[in-house]
Nucleic acid binder design. Structure first.
Length: 498
RNA sequence: GGCCCUAUGGUCUAAUGGCUAGGACGCGACCCUCUCAAGGUCGAGUUACGGGUUCGAUCCCCGUUAGGGCUACCA
């Protein structure tokens, strides 16, 4: 009884530490964002720490702009990190290029114990080897030429200034098995792996080496990453063992796919989370969608951030790749828009409206007060799928030039009675002392009753006259918001075309 | 080619060795209704294929097929 309790305590006292470790070679794409999200949720769920580490060892492809874009994406989705760039932490620095001395130290360790060696083969030689292996239909592996270099030879080669890399002397027998938290046990034969490079000729470590050293030194307990890394994992496990460093647990989550089931990429459309922001998606919709893509909790579809934290667990993560479905994302987005405070939608919609104003350049900005815009937004909020939709849906509230939809015009303005209806409703509305929804509604209903016709007979042509369209929010609302002056003018303008 | 992973409607998924395989998105119809949305009701549509194991397989095993990933001095 006592013994298991001790173990339990030891396990519980270990703080959960996970990391998201993007390489800054582009924007934060949705696949990366989901990996980050799963890590973030895992950390929050366990009351642990979420660490951001920038893997910028590829000097050719890493950019400052990409680093900023990643921060921006993380911030938009509300995934703040507990340790990492900007805020630091006890296990920094959090940029790999600032950790070179550490890597050298561990490379040195491997070198002195004979677990790594210098390799002077040129890229051309290696290319040649790969080609030959391909012709023989063999796995392209490093042939181990420099494995057996003597100290003497190395000394001379080093002195001659010949470029070199450091390779890991990988055990050539045995099996390496990953106890994966998502996939279960996955095993690899070591003999199929080769002596991979751990330090490049520019002195920078390779991904597999740097990740191992950092994850271990940063006390990462769980490495949760994309499935595309699973075949790197045996190499990394072997490195942990060679370095004598403590090993985290692994969980490999499935890929996000495009509509053709290949890995999601640019040709499938928007892939950067920031693009989705700019299209008018809400971060909570994106978080909800991403969380639910490859993870589930029974039948539940809608999750608040708090619920996700409470419910998230790796054993509910699916094993299959999932197609990114914009339609479902849109559905969630419209849902979250409807649940938002109008004030928030106002803030989000304003940039779109301003841009649209520029385009139309027909706006009477003087008369367009915040109050008016707020009313427009309140009436339109429930019909937005994307915030960007506001530009189109709100157009006739800001643009006095009404173009009549040809089909609607055919349907509603060619009716011989339509002209009479419009004249009558115009007169009724003009008579109104106030111009509020109840009065407007009464005017419409009164007129319909008086003329013995259906309400729609008046409403449809009126809608077309005021908006140019056959669909809009409730007509009384539209009339009220537009105000007597515009309504009268637009009705008059319509009458003149008939 | 080699290695690894995966396989439930179009899509995301639930279920479990055992009632008519559940939900959601999308789609269709109807209701509501001044239109369009929203909402409500209903509907069409699925366990990749072939073998086993079993009284019974979506579920367990094998094979086939299909898809994905990796196969760099990228990460």
């Amino acid at each position: 009884m006592i013994f298991p309790k001790c173990i339990l305590f030891a396990i519980m006292s270990q703080e959960i530490r996970v990391r998201f470790a993007p390489s800054p070679t582009g924007y934060l794409h949705v696949g990366g964002a989901r990996t980050a999200l799963f890590n973030w949720l895992f950390a929050k769920h366990h009351g642990g720490k979420f660490i951001l580490r920038i893997e910028d060892t590829d000097r050719q492809r890493s950019t400052e702009a990409a680093i900023k874009a990643i921060f921006q994406g993380m911030e938009w989705l509300g995934m703040e990190w507990d340790e990492g760039p900007k805020i630091g932490g006890a296990y920094g620095p959090y940029f790999q290029t600032e950790r070179l001395a550490t890597y050298k130290e561990y490379i040195e360790k491997l070198l002195t114990t004979g677990k790594a060696y210098y390799c002077f083969c040129t890229p051309e030689e290696l290319d040649q080897q790969r080609k030959e292996a391909a012709e023989r239909k063999e796995a392209p592996r490093y042939n181990g030429k420099c494995r057996k270099l003597t100290d003497q030879e190395i000394e001379t080669l080093l002195k001659s200034g010949k470029p070199y890399v450091i390779r890991f002397r990988l055990p050539q027998e045995g099996t390496t098995v990953i106890h994966d938290l998502v996939k279960g046990d996955v095993s690899f034969e070591n003999e199929l792996l080769d002596d991979f490079v751990i330090m490049k000729s520019d002195g920078f470590p390779t991904y597999n080496f740097a990740a191992v050293v950092d994850d271990s030194l940063m006390k990462i307990t769980h490495v949760i990453r994309g499935e595309d890394h699973i075949s790197n994992t045996p190499r990394q496990i072997l490195l942990y063992e060679a370095l004598g460093l403590p090993m985290p647990q692994f969980g490999h989550i499935p890929m996000i796919l495009g509509t053709d089931r290949s890995r999601l990429s640019k040709r499938h459309g928007a892939t950067s989370v920031i693009e989705y922001r700019d299209l008018g998606y809400l971060p909570e919709a994106m978080v909800n969608y991403l969380a639910r893509l490859g993870w589930s909790h029974g039948d539940q579809e809608i999750f608040s951030r708090e619920q996700l934290i409470e419910l998230f667990s790796l054993d509910r993560v699916a094993k299959t790749g999932a197609i990114f479905d914009t339609e479902k994302l849109k559905w969630l987005n419209s849902l979250y828009i409807r649940q938002s405070l109008p004030e928030r939608i106002y803030d989000l919609a304003m940039p779109f409206l301003e841009k649209a104003f520029e385009t139309y350049n027909k706006l009477d900005k003087e008369k367009t007060g915040i109050e008016y815009i707020m009313k427009v937004i309140q009436i339109l909020q429930d019909r937005l799928v994307l915030i960007a939709d506001i530009s189109y849906l709100a157009q006739y509230f800001f643009d006095d030039h009404i173009e009549y939809d040809p089909q609607a015009k055919e349907k509603y303005f060619t009716n011989p009675k339509a002209k009479e209806y419009l004249e009558r409703i115009k007169a009724e509305l003009e008579k109104l002392s106030g111009f509020t929804k109840p009065e407007i509604e009464a005017a419409f209903k009164g007129l319909a009753k008086e003329m013995g016709i259906k309400l729609g007979e008046i409403i449809h042509p009126t809608r077309l006259a005021l908006t140019g369209r056959s669909e809009s929010p409730g007509i009384y609302d539209v009339v009220e918001i537009l105000g007597k002056e515009k309504v009268t003018a637009r009705l008059q303008a319509a009458l003149e075309t008939m």
